[in-house]
Amino acid sequence: MSTSPLAQAMGDLDESGACALVAEKLAAGEATFSILEELQAGMSLVGERFESGEYYLSELIYAADIFKKAGDPLQEGLKSASSNKLGTIVLGTVKNDIHDFGKDIVATVLSSNGIEVVDLGVNVEHEAFVAAIREHKPELVGMSCLLTTAFDDMKDAIQAIEEAGLRDDVKIFIGGGPVDQVCADYVGADFYGRTAQDGVIAAKRYLGVSQK
């Protein structure tokens, strides 16, 4: 599949170019979905470049912000159309930890890759994860922490999900500064992501979406 000019502009972090192309396409009456898909194809390019080491976190953040800005005029049109989301993730920084940066980056990057994010914020009570799973029926749950003291809170939150009988309904992702595979095993998570892009790749894998 060849890359469209809009996807290319998005992938190249050409902010003004991407915004202008979206405006042109809307003016020409193109369907909002197809425009959104082009922007998402651009985000895939960004992801690939991140994976290959060409882009860094700063570009992921800038790309996600361009995506949001360029995609803003599409929102009205998308409301009336049926959902094209790939899946849903409930996300939060666990109890006793108020750090939101890593969690926010993951939220931004996942949502610009077509995954609906239910962001529970920081210092999230274990039961709030359980309640959100019941309410939103996500395929994925993401937990973040920066403090080693929150490992036990992560473990307890996962235990609470287990006790509520919901553990088999979701895949649980964890991430954050001190988190590693040993921590993932300790808390009983399904996946540990070192970067936000790791999260996107794993989320798409779990959701059965090909990486193009």
Binding site: T148, T149, F151, P178, V179, D180, V182, C183, Y186
Partner: peptide, 8 residues
């Protein structure tokens, strides 16, 4: 020595 190793 990683923080995680001290804790866990």
């Amino acid at each position: 020595v990683p923080p995680r190793m001290f804790s866990l």
